[in-house]
């Protein structure tokens, strides 16, 4: 009986060490780090397209759909202005629709210094969670081409990366699903 109990303990130990063996290699971790950063760069591009007054209406709506797919359901995006102290938070769809209708004749939005402020860390449910910080330069012009408003905003984006599986062509494909969470305004300057 003691031998059976000992065997069970050893088997259980192997089970636990097997779990640890599933930790990602540095190469794979680097790949998902880069993938999450690329999703934030994708969002940066989409925001620039949606905000641009030169983007045709149908294209802007198509890009809003793509941009929305980057986010977890229920995520919110913060909006700040030098003209008021409070920060407003909008659902992702609402944010993009407001962005498309901003009351300027020309809008330029660019993101830079996109980097991790908190590395992706594995959570008990297997999801990797991290925070990426970005700086956004916003410029709004009037009909005469004059720059009438500009600011620079530092924002933190929570990113979630989870291993999922799907059937494609009869095969089970494992993939890393990157989803963006809330975008929080940290500071706004001229």
């Amino acid at each position: 009986m003691k031998r059976i109990a000992l065997a069970l303990i050893i088997l259980a130990s192997f089970g636990v060490s097997g779990l640890f063996a599933q930790e990602l290699s540095p190469e794979r971790k680097q790949a998902i780090d880069s993938l999450a950063l690329e999703k934030v760069r994708d969002l940066s591009k989409y925001i620039s397209i949606i905000g641009s007054k030169e983007t045709p209406w149908s294209e802007a709506n198509r890009v809003i759909d793509r941009a929305e797919e980057l986010f977890m359901q229920g995520s919110e995006i913060g909006v700040s202005s030098l003209a008021r102290p409070e920060i407003s938070y909008y659902t992702v769809r609402k944010y993009f629709e407001r962005l498309m209708r901003l009351n300027y004749n020309k809008v330029e939005i660019s993101w830079y210094n996109i980097e991790y402020v908190s590395d992706l860390q594995k959570q008990p449910d297997g999801t990797y969670v991290g925070v990426i910080t970005i700086f956004q330069k916003f410029k709004g012009y009037d009909a005469e081409g004059r720059l009438v408003y500009q600011d620079t905003t530092k924002k933190d984006i929570t990113v979630y990366v989870k291993r999922k599986e799907t059937q494609i062509g009869g095969r089970l494909i494992g993939f890393w699903d990157v989803l963006l969470g809330d975008i929080r305004v940290k500071e706004t300057t001229r």
């Binding site: 794979r28 680097q30 790949a31 998902i32 993938l35 494609i168 993939f175 890393w176 990157v178």
Partner: peptide
Amino acid sequence: IPVLIIISQNGGFNDYDRP
């Protein structure tokens, strides 16, 4: 048609982005 994007390859094992 589906498009699969390999983000890394290790020991004959592929890691993919969301299809």
